[in-house]
């Protein structure tokens, strides 16, 4: 690959001078940030600070909103994702996403997981079954659903549905998983399971997670980025951010003095 150097340096993303506007409103201001391979990068900040906008830019999902304009570069394995040569569908296959509210399709558990591989042309039933099992196992859901793969996904609990969405994301063998507040609609036990899962998945994937829970960021991430009004205020190891942040604004936010 052309990005052998970046592979060695273990940088999956290099964000350089990223600006983003919704019409005339600037939502991201000159953001510089690197995301390392096999790490969990947490994005925190008050509502409206641009954190969801930021991760949705990483797979260009943000472009589904028509008035969005961007400038700057996002290098994904050394290649600028805004280049004309980049195929957005392929980028989104490599960079999967899990949302705040579990959003399974109104289909069976099995069909949800193999939806992506089927679109990519896989028809072999045995292979699809293998993919379903591997993905569901990786998402720590297999044991709970193996006897009812043909049941409708809507019959699962919220936490199970979210893990199903993660399995669906894994089925197309992504490289990066973006998570936008994946546990905000879940109870503590379901949240705990997702957090455990994130910790396991980082051995094979690179994960970026937007969270409103400071404790969650502290529990599961390696690095934490603090955004405020579209600016990246501080980006450091999670340990530093939560024990001794350098910037007073970070300190004020995480100690509940504003936000």
């Amino acid at each position: 690959m052309t990005n052998a150097v970046n592979e060695n340096e273990k940088l999956v993303y290099e964000v350089k001078g990223l600006n983003l506007w919704y019409g005339n409103d600037q939502a991201l201001k000159d953001v510089h940030l690197d995301i390392k391979k096999n790490e969990v990068t947490a994005i925190i900040g008050p509502s409206g600070c641009g954190k969801s906008t930021f991760i949705k830019t990483l797979n260009r999902m943000i472009e589904n909103i028509p008035v969005v304009r961007t400038s700057g570069e996002i290098l994904y394995h050394g290649e600028n994702i805004f280049d004309k040569s980049i195929r957005v569908e392929e980028l989104r296959t490599r960079v999967g996403m899990v949302f705040q509210k579990p959003n399974p399709f109104p289909k069976s558990i099995f069909e949800n997981v193999v939806y992506g591989p089927k679109i990519h042309g896989i028809r072999d039933k045995k292979l699809l079954m293998e993919i379903a099992e591997t993905s569901l196992r990786s998402a720590a859901l297999w044991d709970e659903v193996k006897d009812r793969l043909n049941d409708n996904a809507y019959g699962l609990s919220g936490g199970q549905q979210q893990r199903l969405c993660i399995a669906r994301c894994l089925a197309v063998q992504p490289d990066v998983i973006l998570m936008d507040e994946p546990t905000s609609a879940l109870d503590p036990i379901a949240t705990y399971k997702i957090e455990e899962l994130v910790d396991q998945l980082k051995a094979e994937y690179t994960i970026s997670i937007v969270t409103h829970s400071m404790q969650q960021a502290a529990r599961i991430s390696d690095r934490t980025a603090f955004f405020l009004m579209g600016e990246l205020i501080e980006f450091d190891t999670t340990e530093t951010i939560f024990s001794n942040p350098r910037d007073q604004r970070t300190e004020d936010y995480i100690t509940g003095r504003f936000g």
Binding site: F242, S243, P245, T250, E251, T255
Partner: peptide, 9 residues
């Protein structure tokens, strides 16, 4: 209260 940063220290 899950103290953080200066509160934790």
């Amino acid at each position: 209260q899950s103290p953080l940063a200066s509160d934790l220290r």
